[in-house]
Simulated scan of single mutants.
Amino acid sequence: MDETHQEENPSAHRSFHPDEHAPAKGPGRTVSKEESGNPHGTPSKSTGRRGQEQIKGSGDKGGMHDLGPRGRSQRPSGTKDASASTGVDPQDPPGTRSAG
């Protein structure tokens, strides 16, 4: 078997022994007045309704119909009628809608 030649690499020694070669830690940065405290501000209360609440309160206007959880996974399920996909009431006779 041939003898393997390995190059001298002083940089590797410095990388793996930072306590011997790295400079001392600096003072760091100063946190400004604007940054201190909660960086995201004060949370506000939402006044809107969730999508589920909007659907339940909208009466029977067609569209999506919740059938409750199904199967072992208890995933939500439901159906939709024609107005949910087209936006047009299928009961309207043709030609009665005005062009926008």
Results as ranks from 00 to 15, higher is better:
1 M>D: 08
2 D>F: 11
2 D>Y: 07
4 T>K: 12
5 H>I: 13
5 H>P: 00
5 H>R: 08
7 E>P: 05
7 E>Q: 12
7 E>S: 11
7 E>I: 04
8 E>F: 15
9 N>A: 06
10 P>L: 10
11 S>W: 07
12 A>Y: 02
12 A>I: 02
12 A>S: 04
12 A>G: 04
14 R>T: 03
14 R>P: 03
14 R>V: 08
15 S>D: 13
16 F>G: 08
18 P>K: 07
20 E>D: 10
20 E>M: 09
22 A>W: 06
22 A>F: 09
23 P>I: 12
25 K>S: 15
25 K>Y: 14
27 P>D: 14
27 P>H: 11
27 P>W: 08
28 G>I: 12
29 R>V: 14
29 R>S: 14
30 T>R: 14
30 T>A: 13
32 S>F: 01
32 S>H: 02
35 E>V: 00
35 E>Y: 07
37 G>P: 05
39 P>I: 06
39 P>R: 04
40 H>F: 15
40 H>P: 00
40 H>C: 05
42 T>S: 12
43 P>A: 00
44 S>T: 15
45 K>A: 08
45 K>D: 00
46 S>V: 10
46 S>T: 06
47 T>M: 02
49 R>Y: 00
49 R>F: 02
49 R>E: 09
50 R>N: 08
50 R>M: 07
51 G>E: 06
51 G>S: 01
51 G>W: 05
53 E>D: 15
54 Q>K: 15
55 I>Q: 04
56 K>F: 00
58 S>T: 06
58 S>D: 13
59 G>C: 02
60 D>G: 02
60 D>L: 09
60 D>S: 12
62 G>Q: 05
62 G>S: 02
62 G>R: 04
62 G>A: 05
63 G>M: 07
63 G>W: 04
63 G>C: 04
64 M>Y: 15
65 H>M: 08
67 L>G: 13
67 L>R: 12
68 G>W: 11
70 R>A: 14
70 R>Q: 14
70 R>F: 12
71 G>H: 07
71 G>M: 03
71 G>C: 05
72 R>K: 14
72 R>V: 04
72 R>T: 14
73 S>F: 07
73 S>I: 00
73 S>W: 05
75 R>S: 11
76 P>D: 10
78 G>E: 07
80 K>L: 09
81 D>Y: 05
82 A>K: 14
84 A>K: 00
85 S>C: 02
86 T>Y: 03
86 T>V: 01
87 G>D: 01
89 D>H: 08
89 D>V: 03
89 D>F: 03
90 P>N: 04
90 P>M: 05
91 Q>K: 13
91 Q>S: 13
92 D>E: 12
93 P>N: 00
93 P>Y: 03
93 P>C: 03
94 P>T: 10
94 P>V: 10
95 G>D: 08
98 S>E: 08
98 S>M: 04
98 S>P: 00
98 S>I: 09
100 G>K: 08
